[in-house]
Design a protein around this nucleic acid. Structure first.
Length: 103
DNA sequence: TTTATGACGAAAG
DNA sequence: GCTTTCGCCATAA
């Protein structure tokens, strides 16, 4: 895998996110041992060749908003399909769908 | 090795 | 509530 070890850890963490739940970049970063490495996580997702078995759509920003990217629309759609309620503005209730918090 | 970039985060104005 | 600034870590050139 072409990327560094950090990527593997990040992908692994993202895969642990249960269906119907979402997590944040910062949360993932923390799980892999990177405190301020939230950007690294996002960058890892950006490098996602789309063949990688990582539910990137379950990863949102710290405030529950979806990152402004071209596929944000698709991400929102996928989350909805999993039962995650996304506000019209693209905001997700982390205190409800967040993970591992959950509630 | 240094510089620049990035699906971020938190704080300050 | 929104925009701006700084901080963090890893990779690329």
């Amino acid at each position: 895998v072409s990327a560094g070890a950090a990527f593997a850890s990040i992908y692994a963490a993202v895969r642990r996110v249960p269906r119907g739940r979402v997590t944040t970049y910062g949360e993932v970063a923390r799980r892999v041992g990177l405190r301020g490495g939230a950007r690294t996580v996002g960058w890892a997702m950006a490098s996602l060749p789309n063949d990688r078995a990582a539910p990137w759509w379950r990863v949102v920003r710290a405030d529950g908003t979806i990152a402004p990217r071209p596929s944000a629309d698709e991400q929102r759609r996928r989350l909805r399909l999993e039962g995650v309620h996304v506000s019209p503005r693209g905001v997700i209730a982390l205190d409800r769908y967040g993970w591992p918090a959950g509630r």
